[in-house]
Simulated assay, not measured.
Amino acid sequence: MSDTLSPDDVLRMRVHALGLAENGWTGAEQEHRGIGGERTGAVVRRMLALQGQDWRSARWALGIRAPGTTVEDVEASFTERRIVRSWPMRGTVHIVASEDIRWMQLATNHRVLAGAPKRRAFLGITDALLDRLVDTSMLALGAAGSSGLDREELGRAWTDAGLEWQSNWRYHLIWWICQNGLAAFGPIGPAGEPLLVAAEHWIPAHRDVTGDAALRELATRYAAARGPIREKDLAWWTGLTVAEARVGISAAVDSGSLVQVRSRDANGEDVPGAAGKLWVDPALLGTPSRDAPLPEWLLLAAFDEHLLGYSDRAPQLDSAHFSRIVPGRNGMFLPTVVHRGRVVGTWKRQRTKAGGLGIDPFPEAQIDTDALAEANRTWAAFHGVAAGDVALIE
């Protein structure tokens, strides 16, 4: 296909594919999204995976893509076993549809498990002790059943079994049993966060996708929910090598689920060579994703896929402002204020009695606090709290 995309085309398609456009996902996708937990579960399935290490932010990343839902609907998706929180790839926590977690791990584990022995050597965990910790964990999770365990309860199970352990071991052990498909975070506990459960008892069914078919599935579904992408975007997002990403994209092109297009720069000139190659779901090349208006104002969650879904974020964010999104470049992405698809500032809930929203705009950004008040009310309705006022941070 000889289509050529401008930076504005790429931005519009990305916003639409991400489920953030004003008309949302349309057609059959919209009709089958259901209500409550079914609806938020369908958002996760559509997105393939959403960044989930910040639990409260991850809930809003779901809510903004399913207008009219609430925190309770997100929690219902977990309780109903539609979605889980775990490590599907890249050594990073994501929210994933229950049936997708295992095949994704099997496709990407070779990239993340290889470094585990070195980490355990640093922590002082021998292979024999690892086996005992894993066995004890799975026995405790099996006994807990669908009730699950929180981190403190898991630690007590180790102590009760006579194991001497250190507090800095717990994250690694939880990651290890989750990354190997033995456990996942599922039902919501009393503290309002997902509890650890044994995967074989909690997850109703796994899809069987392996080899090149798994790479094709990753490429197809990733691009369908992210818009135009480059090979390095898929490689970064999955944690796979560029060569593996290339295999997946090639298989997706052969199946007709992706097509290759070219990109133009801001001056309208074709971007030469490999840098100008993009792959896109052919359904996104028409309307409304290419012609529909971008949403005027959005309040996106910390770690939202709007930025975290790509290695090349230029269409959404001026690189000069990256340090404002990730202060100190410590990997902690702040919640973002988005105007017509572009990030123009950050926001946070005010820690005052009156509450409300504080906006920290980029230099020279023009912020419409009246328009953001509506977005703030939507956020508040989702969480079931008072909205408060919107004000610029002095």
Rank of each mutant, 00 (worst) to 15 (best):
A205V: 11
L133M: 13
G286L: 04
V197L: 07
A199S: 13
E80C: 03
S146V: 01
A214N: 03
T369G: 01
Q366H: 13
P335I: 09
A161S: 13
D160V: 08
R230V: 10
R262M: 11
G273Y: 07
F122I: 15
R377L: 14
H383L: 13
R262A: 15
I95R: 00
N376P: 00
F382K: 01
H339Y: 12
G239Y: 05
R65Q: 13
G309T: 07
P335L: 09
A28E: 09
G388N: 01
A144C: 10
L139A: 13
G256F: 08
L129F: 04
W25G: 02
S255H: 15
G34Y: 02
P272Y: 05
E374T: 15
D150S: 14
A42I: 00
H110M: 10
V134S: 02
P295T: 01
L285M: 07
A219G: 02
W87D: 02
Q316F: 13
R119D: 14
R207K: 14
S289I: 03
A292Q: 11
P204E: 10
D8K: 02
R14N: 05
D270T: 10
P7N: 05
L215C: 07
P363M: 11
A386C: 01
R246H: 13
A266I: 11
N330V: 15
L372Y: 03
W60G: 03
A391Y: 03
I83C: 10
V326L: 06
A381H: 07
R56V: 15
G341H: 05
E374P: 00
G24F: 06
P190L: 14
L372A: 03
A76G: 06
P194D: 06
D370G: 07
I203C: 06
P228Q: 04
V253G: 02
G192L: 11
V247K: 04
E217K: 04
A28L: 14
R14S: 14
L5G: 01
L18S: 03
V259Q: 06
E231N: 12
V337W: 05
H201P: 00
I125C: 07
T210Q: 15
G256H: 08
E269Y: 09
P293I: 09
A373G: 08
A373E: 13
Y171I: 03
A107W: 02
R156M: 15
I393K: 00
R342T: 11
G37N: 04
A381P: 00
E153S: 12
G24M: 09
G227Y: 06
V96N: 06
I188P: 00
T4M: 15
G273H: 07
L195W: 03
L173G: 00
A373Q: 12
L317W: 09
D73Q: 07
A387G: 07
R90Q: 08
I125Q: 01
L334H: 06
E394Y: 01
R111T: 07
T352C: 04
